[in-house]
């Protein structure tokens, strides 16, 4: 669907490039966030264990 009010010519190549690099960068962001969350969960598991161990 084309916006009639976007008066700028975006350039066909720029559109295609965005789709391509968007997938790559999007994947990097996705996996980075995934690992940050994972690391966070792992940390909290270990912190949880050690505090119950100590008592």
């Amino acid at each position: 669907m084309v916006s009639h009010f976007a008066y700028l010519d975006p350039g066909t190549g720029s559109i295609v490039l965005q789709a391509v690099i968007g997938v790559i960068l999007g994947a990097i962001v996705f996996f980075r966030n995934f690992f940050i969350r994972l690391l966070g969960k792992v940390r909290s598991i270990f912190t949880g264990k050690s505090s119950t161990d100590e008592k």
Partner: peptide
């Protein structure tokens, strides 16, 4: 013709 390339919002934000 105008390409039908799709870019999700998540990916646009990544760019």
């Amino acid at each position: 013709a105008k390409p039908d390339a799709k870019l999700s919002k998540h990916n646009q934000l990544a760019i």
